[in-house]
């Protein structure tokens, strides 16, 4: 049968031959369809605009206990003076001789804190915190930096609205096309 599609394909093939740039489609196309449920189980990405944030919520008041049980050993009492990265303090220090880069003084987006804690923390048992716990401990670290109040409730709506003190001091070295 010489259908309209077949005619089109012949014409298309002729054009490719004429230009000498045959797209030899050697792609075996072995990618398998994947369900949104399966993707959701693998996807930890949170964007600065809040895309990817799950349901649930938490406050600093609730996050204090989460922090003490899961974070304190490495990051110290109140987010500083621990053996690993300081999370608190240093605001205003970046232009001094001793810049201290912490969540409060340096990080441009609060969403990054949720993203990172959910994907990678606590170090010895990543994935062990509930989404409510992640919201709560995020709120606690921001509270210790005087960025949110103790009872401010963080969720998918309010977290992207948190304004980090150092937000305006980042510039891009990369210019997309």
């Amino acid at each position: 049968m010489f259908t309209r599609n077949a005619v089109f394909m012949v014409i298309a093939a002729s054009c490719l031959l004429a230009t000498g740039s045959i797209v030899a489609d050697d792609n075996p196309r072995l990618g398998e369809a994947v369900s949104s449920a399966e993707i959701a189980r693998m996807d930890f990405t949170v964007l600065p605009n809040g895309d990817g944030l799950p349901g649930g919520s938490g406050t600093a008041a609730a996050g204090a206990l989460v922090y003490q049980q899961n974070c304190l050993a490495c990051h110290g009492t109140a987010g500083k003076d621990g053996p690993n990265d300081s999370l608190v303090g240093g605001i205003g220090s970046l232009v001094t001789e001793q810049p201290q880069k912490t969540v409060g003084s340096y990080w441009p987006y609060a969403t990054t804190l949720f993203d990172y804690v959910r994907r990678a923390m606590p170090y010895q048992a990543p994935g062990s915190l509930s989404d409510d716990d992640v919201y709560a401990v995020t709120a606690y670290i921001l509270y210790l930096n005087d960025i949110v109040g103790e009872d401010d409730r963080l969720d998918a709506e309010t977290l992207p609205e948190v304004r980090m003190p150092n937000r305006e001091n980042f510039v891009w070295a990369y210019a997309p096309d």
């Binding site: 990405t45 964007l47 232009v95 990054t112 990678a120 980042f170 510039v171 891009w172 070295a173 990369y174």
Partner: peptide, 28 residues
């Protein structure tokens, strides 16, 4: 996606802080 995720490593780690307090992101 339509924008960078501003992950922990690309913002808080592998960015370049200048003496004037401005930090450069995405020095690829």
């Amino acid at each position: 996606v339509d924008q960078p995720a501003m992950t922990k490593d690309e913002t808080s780690k592998y960015s370049d802080l200048q003496a004037d307090g401005v930090a450069r992101l995405f020095t690829f």
